[in-house]
Amino acid sequence: MARKRPEPVQVVKQRRDAALNALVEGVPYIRFLGINFDRRGDELTGVLNFDEKLIGNPLLPALHGGVTAAFLEVTAVITLSWEKMFPKIESGEIDADDILSDDSIRFPKTIDFTVDYLRSGLPRDAYARAFINRSGRRYASVRVEAWQDNHARLFAQGTGHFLMPQNPEPKG
């Protein structure tokens, strides 16, 4: 049997980018911090675009520790949601418009989050990537690392636990 002809690249990119945008743009706090996501295939990198309002120590100056924590947590939640949703986005079961309008699509909830501050955050852009240690039916464990100029010199890393959205039990 002949293999199905692959979709044109623009169709694939448009579908994935639209879904990712819906996931990110709908959250006011992500816009407030100036975070966006770079996508390569299914791999995401969070980008924290530097702004003066992210400063926590004006003398050094350095990024606010709370901003660093929030950036790591946002990257963890978006990556976890994205990986869970990705097969359904690819199959066409979910499209970008559903992500914010469909009430049955829920997001993971943070149970706890721990941040290691390795060096002070410089007043420039920062990047973060999340790795899913384990994602089960109810709980997930995620590790996140963040860097600025040099990926080998992390300025912070974090680990968090998340409660996965539960599908309502079918009645009967």
Partner: peptide, 27 residues
């Protein structure tokens, strides 16, 4: 503050903003 909302459907503040205030208070 509506800019700090994490879930637009409910209007609940994002956990990251709660982390930021807790970090400031601890400092």
């Amino acid at each position: 503050n509506q800019q700090l909302i994490g879930d637009p459907r409910t209007g609940v503040i994002h956990g990251g903003a709660v982390s930021a205030i807790l970090d400031t208070c601890c400092g």
